[in-house]
Amino acid sequence: MNESMSIFSLVASASIVVQLVMLLLLAASVGSWVVIFQRSRLLSSSRAQLLDFEDRFWSGVDLNDLYRECQAQETTSMIENVFMAGLKEFGKMRQQNTHDPDAMIQGCQRAMRIAITRESEALDAHLPMLATVGSTSPYIGLFGTVWGIMSAFHGLASVKQATIATVAPGISEALVATAMGLLAAIPAVIFYNRFASRVDHLTTGMHTFADEFSSLLYRQALRLKQGAKPAASGEK
């Protein structure tokens, strides 16, 4: 308790510039933790939704029924949006009597790439903030420290006899800024790297699904070109 109170007293007795630096670092730390908790929940749920949808997709369900099921939901997952974009484009190309399988699949792949790009942007949202906090907080804290030490040594000019007891409080106040900068930067850097890796894995998963789905649609496009009755949409 005494140690905690001594830290608060150091912050309270610091110069206005150092206090502003500490306030900025505190706000950056709080903001980064908000992003950390929000991104952690989003990425965890997105991973679970990806695995769940792939299980449903490869279970043999009719693709048209799966499409209608996705449409009926109030909110759709990222992988469901990719699936719906591809199947919707396939239906449009089919209605236009396009019998070239390559043209049909190219259209579906373009639609799914656009959907994947949008979902990836949503997953990346707010991650630049963590990168900014992680890279700039130590320097902001160092600025506060340098300013505090300058003020401490400037105060020695009015003291006839300079001792360690005279300069120590000012230096201690200044070093708190560096500590706060590190406390803000370390979690931001750790979780930014972790989240960036998870986003890459999710994006790779969406691209893999899009390739597999394209292969399935290509087989159906070949059946249409050959004039044969299309197999059930759920046949894989």
Rank of each mutant, 00 (worst) to 15 (best):
N2E: 14
M5G: 10
I7T: 15
S9T: 15
V11N: 12
V11H: 08
A12P: 03
V17K: 05
L25W: 07
L25T: 04
L25C: 11
L26F: 14
L26K: 05
A27F: 15
A27S: 14
W33I: 14
V34M: 15
I36G: 06
F37C: 12
R41S: 14
R41G: 11
L43A: 03
S46H: 02
R47N: 13
Q49K: 10
Q49C: 03
L50H: 11
L50F: 11
L51P: 03
L51D: 11
D52A: 10
E54D: 06
R56G: 06
F57H: 02
W58A: 11
D65W: 10
D65A: 12
L66T: 04
L66D: 05
Y67E: 11
Y67I: 10
R68P: 07
Q73Y: 10
M78R: 05
M78Q: 04
E80V: 08
N81K: 15
N81V: 09
V82G: 09
F83C: 08
G86Q: 00
G86D: 02
F90Q: 07
G91C: 13
M93K: 06
Q96W: 00
T98D: 13
H99W: 01
P101I: 06
D102R: 13
A103R: 11
M104H: 02
Q106L: 08
G107E: 08
C108E: 00
Q109P: 01
A111M: 01
R113M: 03
A115Y: 03
A115V: 04
T117Y: 08
T117A: 09
R118Y: 04
S120D: 06
E121D: 13
D124H: 06
H126R: 10
L127Y: 12
L127R: 05
M129K: 05
L130F: 02
L130G: 01
L130W: 03
G134H: 01
S135M: 01
S135Y: 04
S137C: 03
Y139E: 04
Y139A: 04
I140M: 01
G141T: 07
L142T: 07
T145Q: 10
W147T: 14
G148N: 11
I149N: 09
I149D: 10
S151Q: 11
H154R: 14
G155W: 05
V159W: 03
T163M: 12
A165E: 12
V167S: 09
P169D: 13
G170M: 08
L175F: 01
A177K: 01
G181R: 06
L183I: 14
A185V: 08
P187W: 13
A188G: 01
V189H: 00
I190H: 00
I190F: 01
N193W: 08
A196F: 12
A196Q: 09
S197Y: 06
H201F: 00
T204L: 13
H207F: 06
F209D: 00
Y218I: 04
Y218E: 12
Q220G: 02
Q220P: 06
Q220W: 10
Q220R: 15
A221R: 00
R223S: 10
K225F: 06
K225L: 09
A231H: 04
A232K: 10
S233C: 01
E235S: 02
K236E: 02
K236D: 01
